[in-house]
Design a protein around this nucleic acid. Structure first.
Lengths: 303, 303
DNA sequence: TTTCCTTACGCCTATCGTAAGCATA
DNA sequence: TATGCTTACGATAGGCGTAAGGAAA
């Protein structure tokens, strides 16, 4: 025979009523089984909990101690149930989220703000990571979800596009095209270009190639770098031009200006949400839905 | 169907093993009933706790949450049992103890030291009270036990003598008998006496009367007071003599000296332990036994 | 095929209800 | 006598074991 919560539930009611009949009534049962359960409990505790014989019924010292403790324990048990239910609904738990620098100006804070206000009891762990590293981190499980540049389809991953941004060209403020509203692609083909490192920022390297592909040309790459700030600094130094997504304007690097490109077919930089299909659990589901919700609201603005 | 500790005990083992068969073996049962109990638990929580199908078994987010919480709750439950058992053995709880000033020099600290070292988890509440007030406090239940002058037998009280002290006579340092080792009772009968208030320190008033009763005389009371210090101060001021128990020497009031009395039959002042018979519970029993133990050890010294 | 969990079904323990006994006020 | 708890005993629900079914590796 083992201690069960039932014993304590019965005991607390009896300790409050100090009358087996009334307590049994409150518990929707009859006196004798209540007596038995209390005797079992006393057996467990190795000491009487009530002083019988003399009426009215009274708690022993051990009984008083157990009354206080039982109330606490039952409350604790209620909280355990509550927490688990919340975890089941994705309202409580932990979530490790990675993001790329490019999501920082608008998308990332918008999603995080919305999510934390809807799910304040989820602990967030935020990590800034470039997209290829996010893919690895998803594999090893060190992050649950990432805001990244789109992945070429991996079988275990699920991705959804959150945001499309027009590509702009970034050029030094003193460049000879600086006064133009928009610049023709053919003209840009003559200019030296700074591009992104193929390993750590593969995406923009590919985009740059795709943009020039429209006119059957390719960029004259004079330099590569992996971080947006480094690339812009190189542009400011007059070493070349580069293509950047519209949100890069928010970085407002001194000596760098942004101009539209005259496209045949507009090309967009995309921000995506990625996660492992296997790891989908309520907390993650809620985060994904929140991110998609925010994305829905932001798309019209950035188009 | 209600949540019981059994569910959590099973769940924790399963969450550790991540295998129903092994977990069931550890729980000395077979798989199917374990499956059932876990399903009941999942029903209670309103969410799956394990991801089945895919092997090996894995915890859901809610399951991970519940694992942490269950371990805590089960530990809490163990502590509740432990505390209650301790209370049942009188090793934990509360005790309100009253004492008179006269017990302060030796008896009271000896008992308290012994008791607190044997029962460190009992909270003590100490109150200095004159004996008649202790009697009232025992009646109302505002104290559990008192170290007092003996009570005339009250039906609800139990008392045990802890200490017997010889009575001495206190006299001003410049008194004409100051050089004597002992003083005859007949000589004292001529002297003015300071005695104790009948209501608040009834005991010494009675003793004083009893001492002079031995020679068929009675004291010339010139003044009364209720506290030992006040009486000694009055003696120091030369207003009269008084009878005090031997332990009063420890108070060493300036200008007051103590001398033996030549008795026909020695008369002792007694210190007793008093408590209500009805209220005897393990904590009190342990205290009484400790007090009697200390008393046994002290009696030879003070005799 | 092997491993592992669930479903199905019967046993049996242990909780609960009814009725009688016994102690206190 | 009335009230209140325990003891005695029969009913029954629910936990557990055995055996079979079905899904994953």
């Amino acid at each position: 025979m083992n201690l069960e919560l039932r014993h304590l539930r019965y005991f607390v009611v009896l300790a409050e009523e100090l009358n087996f009949a009334r307590a049994a009534r409150r518990l929707h049962m009859t006196q004798p089984p209540l007596s038995q359960q209390i005797m079992q409990l006393e057996d467990q505790m190795g000491t009487p909990l009530f002083i019988r014989g003399r009426r009215p019924l009274r708690l022993t010292d051990a009984g008083s101690e157990l009354l206080v403790q039982s109330k606490r324990l039952l409350e604790h048990a209620d909280n355990v149930v509550l927490s688990t239910k919340q975890a089941g609904r994705g309202e409580r738990g932990n979530l490790t989220i990675a993001f790329i620098t490019g999501s920082l100006p608008y998308l990332f804070p918008a999603i995080i703000n919305r999510y934390t206000s809807k799910f304040p009891n989820v602990n967030l762990n935020l990590k800034e990571l470039v997209s290829p590293f996010q893919r690895d981190a998803l594999h090893t499980g060190s992050i649950d979800v990432g805001i990244m540049r789109p992945l070429q389809d991996e079988p275990n991953f699920e991705t959804r596009i959150l945001l499309k941004e027009r590509m702009l060209v970034a050029l030094p403020a003193n460049h000879r095209y600086a006064q133009r509203q928009a610049i023709e692609l053919e003209e840009l083909a003559q200019e030296p270009f700074v591009s992104f490192d193929r390993k750590e920022a593969n995406y923009f390297d590919v985009i740059t190639t795709r943009i020039f592909g429209q006119i059957g040309s390719s960029p004259k790459i004079v330099q590569t770098a992996s971080q947006m700030y480094t690339v812009l600094a190189t542009v400011a130094a007059g070493m070349g031009l580069t293509f950047v997504p519209e949100s890069a304007k928010a970085l407002s690097f001194p000596g760098v200006i942004f101009r539209e490109i005259a496209f045949a077919t507009p090309i967009y930089a995309e921000l995506a949400l990625g996660w492992r299909r296997e790891r989908v659990q309520p907390v993650l589901t809620n985060f994904i839905n929140t991110a998609l919700e925010v994305s829905e609201e932001m798309l019209p603005i950035t188009k």
